[in-house]
C-alpha cells in the first residue's frame, strides 16, 4: 500500500484533455492530506512531449503502438497491471467517455470500491470523503469508501485546470503487459459532419430540452429564436429523437458553447448538459420544476410554463 494518487490522464488526436490537468491539480491537493505523491499516468504512443506538461509530483508515461488511440481492452490491461504494482491510495479517472469504460471495470478487477460522478473530494482525518452528483444533479451523496484504496471518476470542472498544468519530466516505460490478442481493435476516428450552423460561433442561443414535448412544438421555439435573432440549440434527448441535427447538441457529448445569451426552454440541467454551457455569459432558464438543477447555474429563471412564456414573448417581439 502506498499513499500515492494516480491521475489517469486522457488525450485525443494528440491533445491532452482538460480533465487530465484538472485531475492532476485535484490529486496534488489531496496527496498532501494522505502524505503521498500525485502521479500523472499517461498511456499512448509518441506522446512523450505532452506527458511532460503536468504539474504532478511524478509522471509515468507508458508508450506502446497499441496505446496510440484509446482502447478499453488495452488501457484496461495496462492500468490493472500498474495498479497492482503500485497499490495506490486513490485512482482518479475522468467521468468521461474513456473514464466511464474503465473506472467501474477496474473497480471489479482490482477489488477496490468506486465512486462515480464525483465533484468534490476531501481528506478528513486520513479518510477520503467523496461527494457524488446523482439523480441528474438533483442530489449530492457523500460517502467514505471502505478500505485503504479507492477509485473515483470525477466530473469535468470539479477542479481548476491551471493547478494541474506544469512541466514535470515523465518517466517513460514500455507496457508492463502483453498487448497482443486484444479483443477490441480501434479502427478509425469519425469527425462530426459540418454543414449545419456552428452553434459555438453564435452570440445568442435558444436551447430546447425534453420539456418541449414533441416534434410539432419545435416550430414555436424556432419562431422565438428567429424573432430574437438567435439560433436553436438543444439538449441530447432532442437530437437523439432526430428533432434537431446532432450539430445542435450542447453538452458532454455535444459541443461546449459560450454565447452572450443562452435562453433555455424545458432543460433540467443534468451535469452532462451543464458541462457544455456553464460558461455562457448570461443564462435564463424556463422550467416548471422549481428544483431543477439548472436554476443553480442560470442567472434568471421562471417556473412558468415554457409554451406560455414563449408565446407571450413572441407576441411582444412581433
Amino acid at each position: 500500500m502506498s499513499n500515492d494518487i494516480l491521475a489517469i490522464t486522457e488525450h485525443l488526436n494528440g491533445n491532452v484533455a482538460d480533465i487530465s490537468y484538472e485531475m492532476v491539480g485535484g490529486a496534488k491537493e489531496l496527496a498532501a492530506g494522505f502524505g503521498g505523491q500525485a502521479i500523472a499516468i499517461m498511456l499512448g504512443s509518441g506522446m512523450a512531449e505532452q506527458a511532460g506538461t503536468f504539474a504532478s509530483d511524478a509522471t509515468l508515461y507508458v508508450d506502446d503502438p497499441a496505446l496510440a488511440e484509446f482502447n478499453p481492452a488495452a488501457y484496461g490491461r495496462v492500468l490493472a497491471a500498474l495498479v497492482e504494482e503500485k497499490s495506490p491510495r486513490l485512482i482518479m479517472f475522468g467521468n468521461t467517455s474513456m473514464g466511464m469504460d474503465l473506472a467501474a471495470w477496474l473497480s471489479v478487477k482490482a477489488g477496490v470500491p468506486c465512486v462515480a460522478y464525483v465533484n468534490h473530494l476531501a481528506v478528513e482525518g486520513g479518510e477520503l470523503v467523496a461527494t457524488a452528483q446523482i439523480y441528474g444533479g438533483k442530489m449530492a451523496a457523500e460517502c467514505v469508501p471502505a478500505g485503504d484504496s479507492a477509485i473515483v471518476s470525477v466530473m469535468a470542472g470539479a477542479f481548476p485546470l491551471d493547478a494541474g498544468q506544469g512541466s514535470t519530466a515523465a518517466e517513460q516505460m514500455a507496457s508492463p503487459v502483453s498487448l497482443d490478442d486484444l479483443p477490441i481493435r480501434f479502427t478509425r476516428l469519425i469527425m462530426p459532419e459540418a454543414g449545419d450552423v456552428d452553434i459555438t460561433a453564435q452570440e445568442k442561443l435558444v436551447a430546447i430540452g425534453r420539456g418541449i414535448g414533441s416534434d410539432d412544438n419545435i416550430e414555436l421555439a424556432e419562431e422565438l429564436a428567429e424573432a430574437m435573432d438567435a439560433v436553436l440549440a438543444a439538449s441530447r434527448p432532442i437530437t437523439d429523437a432526430g428533432w434537431l441535427p446532432k450539430t445542435r447538441q450542447v453538452g458532454k457529448s455535444g459541443v461546449s458553447v459560450k454565447p452572450k445569451l443562452y435562453l433555455m426552454l424545458g432543460i433540467s440541467g443534468a451535469p452532462e448538459h451543464i458541462e457544455g454551457m456553464k460558461d455562457a455569459e448570461f443564462i435564463i432558464a424556463i422550467n416548471t420544476d422549481a428544483d431543477a438543477p439548472i436554476f443553480d447555474v442560470a442567472h434568471y429563471g421562471t417556473t412558468e410554463d415554457l409554451f406560455d412564456v414563449a408565446e407571450a414573448m413572441l407576441e411582444k417581439l412581433e
Binding site: 484533455a17 482502447n71 476516428l189 469519425i190 462530426p192
Partner: peptide, 10 residues
C-alpha cells in the same frame, strides 16, 4: 467522445 467525435472499434 466530446464534440461529436466518434471512435469506431471492432
Amino acid at each position: 467522445y466530446a464534440g461529436g467525435v466518434m471512435a469506431e472499434f471492432e
